[in-house]
């Protein structure tokens, strides 16, 4: 069509052809990206978990289930549980903080919403590592937080927050709060507020309206937010490293240590696979609890 038999034909048809080329190109690039940077590494990790660690090389080709058996040692189980516990607490604190925030934000006018959205998103433009370090300035013994509490007369001795589990929690909640707010907000923004009028008309008091109407209808947002907080919370190894003094180990720390410090790659792989399995289970739960329409609305 684009040959020498006329410019008009060329102009009419070539853009379409180029469009198709562009489409195919982008699809190929995306697939290639996923293949090389997601599927391939994951396959390596999956295979690596069944291999033996070597002294000269990180992995040697001897099939074994030893690494998975090792996972059931008390030490590792404890880290698993602690990790779940910390991530769970983080998610719950995030939910408690984020729900009122998202609720109020969804009731504001367009411009005010945009402002708060910016306030929420701007910190993301700096490295999270930097932000975690800057928390130290706030919560250390002579930090702003203690300074404020002492000034207000609420405490007489500065709190020793640094290098405790509380510090880790503060860091995790701080970093992950937006991941809870955004899906909740997306859900509440579309909420049909006349439903609350209807409930009031039928005699429902405030608490009943909240628990029978608002929360059930924002459940997809709540579950999505919980997942978006729970999953990263288990892997953010640098937060306990910096704030918790490595006292509260997360799964992420365990994996990092196996690869970088203990040079036990098979075990690191096995833990990673376990973590992936946990994630898949949670996402499956989310899939089962929500309808396709609800999931689309959160996009």
């Amino acid at each position: 069509m684009c040959g020498s038999n006329g410019r008009l034909v060329g102009r009419l048809y070539c853009p379409m052809k180029r469009d198709i080329f562009f489409k195919q190109c982008s699809i190929v690039i995306i697939f290639a990206w996923l293949l090389f940077f997601a599927l391939l590494p994951f396959t390596l990790v999956l295979v690596g978990g069944f291999l033996t660690g070597g002294t000269n090389e990180f992995l040697s080709w001897h099939f074994t289930l030893q690494s998975y058996a090792d996972l059931f040692q008390l030490l590792y189980l404890r880290i698993f549980l602690r990790s779940f516990y910390l991530a769970g607490i983080t998610a719950i604190i995030c939910l408690i903080l984020a729900y009122p925030f998202a609720y109020i934000m969804s009731k504001f006018s367009e411009n005010v919403r945009l402002f708060w959205m910016l306030i929420l998103i701007i910190p993301f433009w700096t490295s999270s590592l930097m932000r975690i370090y800057s928390i130290i300035i706030v919560i250390r013994v002579k930090g702003w937080f203690n300074g404020f509490l002492l000034w207000a007369g609420l405490i007489h001795q500065p709190l020793h927050l640094m290098y405790t589990q509380t510090a880790t929690l503060i860091g995790l909640v701080y970093t992950l709060l937006p991941f809870m707010i955004l899906p909740l907000y997306a859900n509440l923004e579309k909420f049909n507020w006349t439903l609350l009028d209807a409930a009031r008309d039928l005699g429902a008091k405030q608490l009943r309206r909240l628990f029978k109407i608002v929360i059930p209808l924002t459940l997809p947002g709540i579950i999505a937010g919980m997942l978006l907080v729970l999953l990263p919370a288990m892997t953010m190894f640098y937060v306990p490293d910096i704030l918790g003094g490595a006292k509260s180990l997360l799964l992420g720390n365990l994996i990092k240590n196996q690869f970088i410090e203990a040079y036990n790659w098979p075990l690191g792989c096995a833990v990673s696979v376990m973590l992936t399995v946990v994630m898949v289970v949670m996402i499956a739960f989310y899939w089962k609890m929500t309808t396709p329409k609800e999931r689309r609305e959160l996009m």
């Binding site: 006349t194 439903l195 009028d197 209807a198 008309d201 039928l202 059930p216 209808l217």
Partner: peptide, 12 residues
């Protein structure tokens, strides 16, 4: 009691 304009039935 009121019947709302778009009925405001509880979708869940």
């Amino acid at each position: 009691n009121m019947v709302f304009q778009n009925y405001a039935l509880f979708p869940h």
